[in-house]
């Protein structure tokens, strides 16, 4: 049952999960709409790929370098722009993504439109899923920490959050940095799985694809992002049997899912909450 094709799709699901979790932290948990997640992914992918190709550094090192580079750019972009609100922030992230793409298309060391080929295939189903598990647990810890509550406070009401003494700009930048870090990590895995990257892989559509996963799974919900990544990676593959009508169905599925589950499949569901309500219920029955 686990032939190469399913393994392939499974790895892509894993990579997409990491990407979606990163965006979920920025958009779902902290409430800052980003339309440029693919840009951070491309920064991670290119940094790690160039390090791999030029200096043959170990996989763990290049992966982390890519992720940190993406986080660094996240902070750089975050500083001036995070005082913008809502859709104005969205458009700057979109603009940043386009700028990144054009810069990569002009960069000699990134191979311009020819892309980078022959990247060693280091990512596999094991290391991808180990990372997925690490990221999921780290994020759960983060969300239930003081920092995570600050993120959610910012999402719910910026002014109230500020009034209670949360330095909102600092926390927003922090969320942006961590989200970008995860995007960079996903990008590095992507590069070392497909073995070839090209600036046009990381366009607007890619950002939208990741956003779809987050919203479909349920904003702010970590199991939701995992489910969203799973569904939106597997559904297009499943729909192959409808041949040419595949993307037509994909569009319809998006619309209907949103109509029937406007808050996403697992909107408002979090693992810890599920556990704690069960505990409480147990207590009640015991009494």
């Amino acid at each position: 049952m686990f032939n190469a094709y399913y393994l392939q799709v499974l790895v892509v699901v894993g990579i997409n999960t990491i990407l979606a979790l990163g965006l979920n932290l920025i958009t779902g948990i902290t409430g800052q709409l980003s339309l440029g997640h693919a840009a951070f992914m491309s920064i991670g992918a290119y940094t790690s790929a160039i390090l791999s190709l030029k200096y043959q550094l170990p996989f763990a090192v290049v992966l982390l370098s890519g992720a940190f580079m993406a986080a660094f750019f996240g902070i750089i972009l975050g500083f001036p722009t995070l005082r913008l609100s809502g859709d104005y922030l969205a458009i700057t992230t979109l603009g940043f993504a386009e700028i990144t793409k054009v810069v990569l298309l002009n960069m000699e060391s990134a191979g311009k439109a020819l892309g980078l080929a022959g990247i060693p295939q280091k990512a596999n189903v094991y290391n991808v899923y180990v990372l997925v598990i690490v990221v999921v647990f780290a994020l759960i810890r983060l969300i239930n920490s003081r920092v995570g509550r600050a993120f959610q406070a910012i999402r719910e009401d910026e002014i109230a959050a500020e009034a209670t003494g949360i330095p909102i700009t600092r926390y927003k930048i922090m969320a942006f940095a961590i989200g970008s870090f995860l995007a960079g990590l996903g990008g590095g895995l992507y590069a070392h799985y497909l073995t070839y990257i090209n600036p046009t892989d990381f366009g607007f559509l890619k950002s939208i694809e990741i956003l779809n996963m987050v919203v479909l799974g349920g904003m702010g919900s970590i199991p939701g992002s995992v489910l969203g990544a799973l569904i939106l990676t597997v559904v297009p593959e499943m729909l192959r049997f409808v041949q040419d009508y595949r993307m037509l169905f994909y569009g319809v599925v998006l619309i209907f899912l949103m109509i029937f589950r406007p808050n996403g499949l697992l909107g408002g569901v979090s693992l810890t909450k599920m556990l704690s309500t069960r505990k409480r219920r147990n207590l009640e029955t015991n009494n």
Partner: peptide, 20 residues
């Protein structure tokens, strides 16, 4: 419902129309 749900629905329409 949330504005982002409407956004995703709009993206669905957009994919549908261009494929059609």
């Amino acid at each position: 419902s949330s504005r982002l749900s409407a956004l995703i629905s709009a993206i669905g329409v957009s994919i549908f129309l261009s494929t059609l």
